[in-house]
Design a binder for these strands. Structure first.
Length: 671
DNA sequence: TAGCCTCGAGTTCA
DNA sequence: CTCGAGGCTA
């Protein structure tokens, strides 16, 4: 980025970060998540690093904390309360150590104390003659708010130190973190919902809100918790670790997971371990803090900005981040639907590099107001699928381009037609569609032909070996082995895999046809209502049905009936079916064993991975016994079968009180 | 006829 | 996982 652009960007960033900061700290309103705010700050920090002359005294990177609220008495901290600089990568940590050693002018002993960075608020506690006298928030680091009354409601904070195993000095200053556990957070939010009170976005906000209550009774109704982590009063101990031991001996609650380590590598391990296992903690953490264990070295390292040079917070990979929409491209699906996808400047979220995110449809683009060149917030829905959740319009420089809905298909130039919220390519034979139709045909819930992935299908199409899905059954080893990078063995494997799949259950066969509106479930309904055992019979049957007849099938209404009707009255499709028959595709007739089945008319949902079979097999078995398989949990769900590493469906089932069974119990039901 | 429940179709990345 | 919409039901 050149300097002029950088200057403009820095100013924009400063403005927007300050705005969010004000809204969050003064108005107690969370407009964007702390992760997204961090991403913006990081960008600003990096730009300022590149162009130090752009650093202004009022830059958000140059200060810490917010203004104290008026209602509380101001307290001056004897020693200013610092925060920590953030690191986001191993490189950042390496750089940090280099900075320290540069500053000190020598190599230092690699001994660090690692602590969990709890998502709460830092507080200062002052004891006089062993009695808790005053407690305060960090505030701007020099002046905080007096919240003594509220802190007294927290059991983890001792009101006196009469149980101390060591002698307490006349005046003792201790610092710690105040936070709310996950359970308590949920409980209070539920209550707030009932009483139409304020809903908090995260435990930290709720803890902050609770400590700012003027009435301590409200604070005490919320079970706040606390860990102590620093002693300001000098006890003459050599290491930070010893300070923690002292705190424990004096009767403070300290975090049992903290650990002394002897290398940078161990810092990384500590951080990675807790990123993976943070779920099992009863409170939220957003990273770890590494501190130089030797108090003398730590002290000599001094202060940089508003943070000690000798300590650093190593954050977990954020759950969301900001990035730039570099382009919006269009994909054409099996049904000809045009789907816009945002091409993003790569960002790492949850340890994975994100480069694309779906925009779903053109309404969504309008709703979000995304333009090419916009800075946006990207997160991962359900921690998996990348999505654009917000556009930061304040960061626009006027060069952003609005995205126009294409009038012609980007693949083959055919006219685009508008249907409801969707836009479709009008050409039935559009190249993109044909490819997607074949992919669908061989996919797992359809013909399940392994080894015939998208890349190989593309090759076969390009080489002219196939032109539609039926052709794949004609393929012989000679055709394939002739291609570059295909050996005899791989050709053999593909052909035998294809031949193995010539026998197929009716519902899979119907699903594979790719009839509009007929997915897995509707295909099962059709197969159950009109069981046929040969393709010829299938053609005859469906050609004889009227729209009314079709609607007799459960879950089939006018729209779906019309779609099925249209499909079977298209000569091209009938030719396709006849071709399949000619190539020897056999429909397996299934005898539904519903007689004394425990699954008859029961609705099941599967989540997580099963051990003894794939999910697809499990679904099939359940259906054979008359069960209904659904992909979403509701009150009507009878059983949810939970395998290893279940997803969000498990959580929902727990909430709704659906009967939860494991794989063993499921297998018993099958018997 | 409104509102709930499901389904279909499209999506990302390792 | 999300959005849109089809089908069923109160």
């Amino acid at each position: 980025m050149d300097k002029k652009l950088a200057k403009e960007r820095v100013e924009h960033l400063k403005k927007i970060i300050n705005k969010y900061r004000y809204e969050r700290l003064v108005l107690n309103k969370e407009v964007i998540s702390p992760d997204a705010e961090d991403a913006l700050k990081k960008e600003l920090f990096d730009l300022e690093n590149e162009y130090p002359e752009l650093i202004a005294a009022d830059s958000p990177t140059q200060r810490v904390g917010g203004k104290p609220l008026k209602e509380f008495k101001k307290v001056r901290h004897e020693t200013s309360m610092l925060s920590f600089n953030d690191a986001f990568s191993e490189k950042d940590i390496n750089d940090w150590l280099k900075r320290v050693e540069n500053y000190l002018g020598r190599k230092i002993n690699r001994e660090f104390y690692c602590e969990l960075k709890i998502d709460g608020l830092a507080v200062e506690l002052v004891y006089e003659n062993g009695i808790f006298l005053q407690g305060s928030t960090r505030g701007d680091g020099i002046y905080g708010e007096d919240i003594t009354q509220n802190l007294k409601t927290i059991e983890a904070i001792p009101l006196n130190l009469e149980h101390s195993k060591i002698k307490i000095p006349k005046k003792l200053i201790v610092r710690g973190e105040v936070f709310l556990g996950k359970k308590e957070f949920e409980r209070i939010n539920k209550e707030q919902e009932k009483s139409a009170g304020k809903i908090f976005a995260n435990p930290r906000n709720m803890a902050a809100g609770s400590l700012r209550q003027l009435d301590p009774k409200i604070t005490s109704s919320r079970k706040l918790d606390s860990f102590a982590y620093e002693i300001i009063t000098d006890f003459g101990v050599k290491t930070h670790e010893e300070k923690h031991e002292l705190l424990k001996e004096m009767g403070f609650k300290i975090n049992p997971n903290n650990k002394r380590v002897n290398s940078l590598k161990e810092i990384f391990e500590f951080r990675n371990y807790w990123e993976k296992h943070r779920e099992k903690l009863s409170y939220e953490i957003d990273g770890i803090v590494a501190i130089i264990n030797d108090n003398k070295i730590f002290g000599d390292s001094g202060v940089i900005g508003k943070a000690p040079r000798g300590a650093i917070a190593y954050k977990f990979s954020p759950k969301e981040s900001t990035t730039i929409v570099e382009d919006i491209k269009i994909q054409v699906g099996r049904t000809g639907t045009l789907t816009p996808v945002a091409v993003l400047k790569p960002v790492e979220i949850g340890g994975i590099k994100i480069t694309h995110a779906t925009l779903h449809n053109f309404n969504q683009i309008k709703k979000l107001g995304v333009r090419i060149g916009d800075t946006v917030i990207v997160s991962r829905a359900g921690d998996v699928i990348p999505q654009v959740s917000k556009v930061l319009k304040d960061l626009r420089n006027g060069k952003e381009k609005e995205f126009a809905i294409p009038k012609i298909c980007p693949i083959d130039g055919s006219k685009v037609v508008h249907e409801g919220a969707f836009y479709r390519c009008s050409n039935q034979k559009c190249g993109a569609r044909n490819r997607e139709i074949i992919r669908h045909f061989v996919s797992k819930p359809a013909f399940n032909i392994e080894g015939l992935g998208p890349k190989i299908i593309d090759r076969f199409l390009d080489e002219g070996l196939i032109s539609d899905a039926a052709n794949i059954f004609e393929l012989n080893e000679g055709d394939i082995a002739g291609l570059e990078r295909f050996g005899e063995k791989s050709a053999q494997n593909i052909v035998s895999e294809i031949q193995d799949r010539k026998k197929i259950p009716l519902c899979r066969f119907i699903y594979a046809l790719g009839i509009l509106q007929v997915g897995e479930e509707t295909a099962v309904a059709l197969a159950r209502y009109f069981p046929v055992s040969r393709i010829k019979e299938l053609i005859k049957k469906y050609r004889s049905l009227s729209l009314e007849n079709l609607q007799e099938i459960p879950d089939v209404g006018p729209k779906v009936a019309q779609s099925i009707y249209n499909w079977f009255y298209n000569e091209r499709n009938i030719k396709f079916l006849e071709k399949l028959e000619k190539f020897g595709i056999k429909i397996e007739s299934i005898k539904y064993q519903t007689a004394n089945s425990k699954l008859k008319e029961k609705t099941l949902v599967f989540t997580g991975e099963l051990e003894s079979m794939s999910r697809e097999e499990a679904k099939e078995k359940a259906r054979d016994l008359g069960g209904d398989v659904s992909e979403s949990v509701s009150k009507k769900t009878d059983y949810i079968v939970v395998g290893s590493e279940p997803g969000s469906k498990y959580e929902k089932a727990k909430k709704l009180g659906v009967k939860i069974i494991d794989e063993k119990e499921f297998l018993n039901l099958l018997k």
